[in-house]
Write a protein that binds this DNA or RNA. Structure first.
Lengths: 251, 251
DNA sequence: CGCTGCTTTGATTCGTATCAATAGCAGTGG
DNA sequence: CCACTGCTATTGATACGAATCAAAGCAGCG
């Protein structure tokens, strides 16, 4: 059913993947110091590099399919991906957003519990899951990093459960904007205090993150603009004018 | 603000804690083979035992408070606890249910991101967080177990996000009953095929798990009984009559 | 037996989804 | 440069599901 992106032999030259080479330059990797690889010394890094492969993924393409046996895990070098759980009738819930230096996939378990799809053009450093599992088992520091990351993700997911289960539409949107403002300002070269940022995705995806419809999401944003809480210079840009009021609204 | 249950010096004899002794019998522990401790050999176990302390927690008492510096982690020996995230105005969302052999707390981080409260009388094996962190860092196998457990929890949480964000009340209740049926049948001495089980908590707590109100929850259960999907022999007992229909309904 | 707290049931309101149409923007080709 | 096309977002009217408000049942317990 799926043209597996991670299967070299199945890659047509026109596919989402532009190149597919062994990783030889972990030492100069853009996320070298932020990704889990940061736990490794030069020798270990070289070893892991042999297992990894760089790969580009075009916006909209899916790296991992929910329910499929997923023989890969990956680090994100660039771009933004979403983790999606879908129901049979097409309803979707985004259960995670993956930024550069974040880790994707399910080590130590074969079925991927969700799909991972690129929301922007992206670049990932991909590993065969079995090799990665073995490597991780032999490198406690790596495993430790992974554990910390997973614990953080779990905390984040649980807070999101509160939002999904108990917050109103306006609270959801406000909470979302504040969190995105934080997570996105870490990236890029934003001059610190600016409260403007560009979302890497559209309204429908915001709706899928918040458990709302696109219409409700749009209405809430329009209302916030009317109330002067924010500006919407373009479709994907957000400028928060009144952060205090926004925090108030987030509940 | 909180009479910390894990602070020996603050324990009045009438408190939730009945006794408070060093653990000396890990080898005969009821959850010995299921908890993360299963990764340890006899020597290591003895060492960890020195760090641990058994403690009883009465139903309704809180072991960890959201936002507090939480100097402890624990294994659950007996009983059921809930993990709760609360809003300023009192709304609550249960973000996790903790059964015997499960692990509670946030290693490698000080603020507890949620409260942990006993739903039934419970018994836990408690550790000072710092000591536990150190012990874990020195024992890769333990850390590995913990990682696997955390990954499982994350998967579970993410699936729950789908339920909270996208499912209707009837789908929520059906999904909940099916999951509880599974998780509870592992425990106790249920004769396998029986589809009846006793929930360790009341209607309000079901509502807090599903992101519903108690009234809606009650109405859904009543309707399912009327439709013959299940029986409700007593307040906390559930007998699923038509599992297929229930799975259908869970969406 | 009569509390007390939990659960069920009923009437009504309110928020969000749904359905439907319009508006705005980005890319394409005349 | 501007009309055309397709897609995404906004806006409006309405319907529906779940929350809320209110009251009555029902168990367990002194």
């Amino acid at each position: 059913m799926t043209e597996a992106l991670w299967e070299p032999s199945s890659l047509p030259s026109s596919a989402a993947v532009d190149y597919d080479g062994r990783v030889t330059d972990c030492a100069t990797c853009v996320v070298r110091n932020r990704a889990i690889c940061a736990s490794l010394d030069a020798d270990e890094l070289a070893l892991l590099g042999k297992l990894g492969r760089r790969q580009r993924v075009k916006a909209g393409h899916t790296l991992l399919w929910e329910g499929d046996d997923a023989p890969v895990v990956a680090n994100v070098l660039d771009g933004v991906l979403k983790l999606v759980v879908a129901a049979a009738d097409g309803r979707e819930q985004i259960v995670g957003i993956v930024f550069p230096s974040d880790f994707i996939g399910r080590p130590f378990g074969k079925e991927s519990p969700y799909s991972a799809t690129a929301m922007t053009d992206a670049e990932v450093c991909i590993f065969n899951r079995k090799s990665f599992d073995e490597f991780a088992s032999a490198h406690p520091d790596l495993q430790h990093k992974l554990l910390r990351r997973t614990l953080d993700e779990l905390d984040r997911a649980r807070h999101w459960m509160m939002l999904l289960g108990r917050k109103s539409a306006s609270e959801k949107v406000a909470s979302f904007l504040l969190e995105m403002s934080e997570r996105l300002s870490g990236q890029g070269c934003n001059a610190g205090t600016r409260s403007g940022f560009e979302l890497p995705f559209g309204r429908q995806q915001i709706a899928d993150i918040l458990g709302l419809t696109i219409e409700t999401t749009s209405r809430q944003l329009t209302k916030m603009r009317a109330d002067g809480l924010l500006d919407l210079p373009s479709r994907r840009e957000i400028v928060i004018n009144d952060r205090a009021a926004m925090e108030d609204m987030a509940g």
